[in-house]
Nucleic acid binder design. Structure first.
Length: 596
RNA sequence: GGAGGCGUAGCUCAGCUGGAUAGAGCAUUGCCCUUCUAAGGCAACGGUCAUAGGUUCGAAUCCUAUCGCCUUCACCA
């Protein structure tokens, strides 16, 4: 039973015994550093059922707790705050319980029927991944891990946007200007190669528009009549008709892109359990549009287009099928969602990691699925996140103002290397070991930089200012971990008996107690993060814990002074903290080094 | 115009379901490496929580209005 639960029961009993009133809940908070005590009970909310002076009520309850609860050794009341002091024995007991639990605070997966599907990444296949995708991938992956830790089964997935006019543009440019270039012949990553043709297409397109406008066409006409665009549209029609040559080219170039993406995913440390291809699912939604028409969820207009009227829900009318009967984005997403539940019947909810520019789209999608009568539709969540902007504004692929994901990863580990060299940290290590470490540190810094920010806020990324390796950053926390590993090595485990129960004769320092209080709250932090789909919560919580530990441990002779029991306790406490760091960083997808 | 989001220290951000004197990092300025890793520690400086009202014992947090920035409201995806 948790401390809060114990106290909560007793406070309710106290209120009943002293004031003859029923208290439905008790409000707790951690006692602020300036005041004596460990945990604080807020008296104000009780005034609703107990009339009187908050200070006197607090005094009465405090006295009752002191008399009746073993763990309570003192109390004081400041205004309406009842500060309770808890004895060391409770914390030492708690510590003995958890000190050897390598997964402390992190619930194991229980197989059940409450699985969650998490979608993330889902890039277009005509451009390489950039920093915006990196944020998406890191968020999605981390949220998946956090949900897992909260006790649910998770399927990671993505929908691959392999259909539509944008692919044809790259294909066409490759045919015209490609000279049979391949990733092998050029040595380029496949996604980079295809991306370069997408840019090439756009350049040609602009040229042709200018020529047409010089001929006296209006801008609008020119945009529609440019030969290269018309040709791309023809190509799309051929693709939809199943033209062999076009489909073969499409398959080849898409494969190049997938191979390129796979490299980036691997470097980012993300993965997927299953994939959905738009080209294979875009027709599925139509079936359900028909069904919805019959049940009156949708309406058909004179021109044949199908709409969903959401005005009674405060939204607009939304198109779900074009007048020519072809599918739109919404149609496809309806189909994909239904298909996923068919494929994985244990899935009871889904999380979509998609940028906040699509907030409206998902609001509508979820509403339509509800109207279609799917009971899982109430468990859909749009994990919406803000854009990553540059000082110059938005990233735009066509204008080349993007921070390329691969380049950034290389830069990060290079920076880690430079800093390490300057500090002379790794003299004497083999080159491969160094490289591995630089990756761990550089990638960690990037991931933490992105994940520590509330998902819904936009991130400003200044390439000129490198990502932090100091302060509230992954390398700081990684270093704390590495130092603890160093302590554990030097502690000479054969001499110090780590498995020994810490005796009750031990006197806890104030800071040690404060640290244990935080440790106690960690599982709750994980649950909150899962409920809110927010890795930022875990990141900031971990930093707070490590910072407290660091400032404490800086002034502490872990192996030097004190008696044997204290020494063992410090080493074990360090070990516990490092376990928590490792597990928390696992939830963020960040590795921890044994030394750095 | 309708809808949604954001606005907290010079900069980047925390601040859980309302709680005590609003917290970190960076930057600036002092100290601290014969003490298991200084990517560190201690301290100073820095705030009208966009603005104005309201709700209440109590508001950065909830409500309303205003201002500023962003997104969205396509037979694009």
């Amino acid at each position: 039973m948790s401390l809060q639960a114990i106290l909560s029961n007793h406070v309710q009993q106290a209120v009943k015994a002293i004031f003859n009133a029923e208290l439905s809940s008790v409000e707790f908070q951690a006692t602020r550093k300036e005041f004596a005590g460990d945990i604080t009970i807020v008296v104000f909310p009780m005034l609703r059922v107990v009339k009187g002076n908050p200070v006197q009520i607090g005094e009465a309850i405090g006295q009752y707790l002191l008399d009746n609860v073993e763990e309570v050794v003192g109390f004081n009341v400041v205004k309406g705050f009842l500060n309770i002091e808890i004895n060391d024995a409770f914390y030492i007991g708690f510590f003995n319980e958890v000190k050897n639990d390598d997964t402390y605070g992190f619930v194991d997966v229980e197989e059940g029927d409450n699985a969650v599907m998490v979608e993330y990444s889902s890039p277009n296949t005509n451009k390489p991944l950039h920093l915006g995708h990196v944020r998406n991938n890191l968020l999605g992956y981390s949220v998946a891990e956090i949900i897992k830790a909260s006790g649910k089964k998770v399927y990671k997935t993505q929908i691959i946007n392999d259909r539509g006019i944008h692919i044809c543009k790259s294909m066409l440019a490759w045919k015209r200007f490609g000279n049979d270039e391949t990733p092998e012949s050029t040595g380029l990553k496949g996604d980079k190669l295809v991306g370069s043709y997408y840019v090439k297409f756009d350049q040609e397109y602009k040229k042709e528009i200018e020529i047409l406008m010089a001929d006296g066409k209006t801008n609008e006409e020119a945009k529609k009549q440019a030969p290269i665009l018309v040709e791309a549209q023809n190509m799309l029609q051929k693709w939809e008709a199943g033209d062999k040559e076009v489909v073969a080219l499409w398959e080849m170039m898409n494969q190049w892109v997938y191979d390129g993406f796979d490299v980036t995913y691997k470097n980012l440390g993300v993965d997927f359990d299953c994939l959905y291809h738009e080209s294979k699912t875009y027709l599925l939604g139509k079936e359900f549009v028909d069904q919805g028409l019959k049940t009156g969820v949708f309406i058909k207009k004179e021109d044949g287009s199908v709409w969903c009227d959401l005005t009674s829900d405060g939204l607009d009318e939304k198109i779900v099928l074009r007048s020519d009967g072809t599918a739109v984005y919404m149609t496809q997403d309806i189909g994909t969602a239904i298909q996923r539940i068919k494929d994985f019947p244990d899935v009871g909810g889904m999380v979509y990691t998609v940028g906040n520019e699509q907030d409206y789209h998902f609001k509508v999608l979820f509403l339509i699925l509800k109207k279609l009568g799917f009971d899982w539709a109430k468990n859909l969540y749009h994990l919406s996140y803000g854009m990553v902007d540059l000082p110059s504004g938005k990233m735009k692929s066509r204008e080349g103002t993007v921070v390329d994901a691969d380049d950034l990863l290389v830069e990060m580990s290079q920076t880690a290397g430079e800093i390490s060299e300057d500090l002379g940290k790794l003299d004497g290590y083999r080159d491969e070991e160094k490289e591995e470490l630089y990756k761990t540190i550089g990638l960690g810094a990037l991931k933490y930089f992105v994940l520590k920010v509330d998902p819904k806020k936009r991130i400003l990324f200044d390439p000129k200012e490198s990502i932090d390796f100091n302060g509230n950053s992954a390398p700081y926390i990684q270093m704390a971990y590495a130092r603890i590993q160093s302590i554990l090595r030097k502690a000479n485990l054969s001499e110090i008996d780590l498995s020994r129960e810490i005796q009750s004769t031990l006197q806890l320092h104030e800071k040690e107690k404060a640290l244990l209080k935080q440790v106690q709250l960690f599982p709750e932090a994980v649950q909150n993060a899962a409920a809110q789909y927010s890795p930022a919560l875990i990141a900031n919580y971990t930093y707070d814990l490590v910072k407290d530990f660091s400032s404490f441990y800086q002034n502490l002779q872990i192996l030097g002074t004190g008696n044997e029991v204290e020494k063992v306790f410090r080493v074990q406490l360090s070990k516990l903290v490092s376990n928590i760091i490792k597990n928390a960083f696992g939830l963020l997808g960040i590795n921890v080094p044994e030394r750095m």
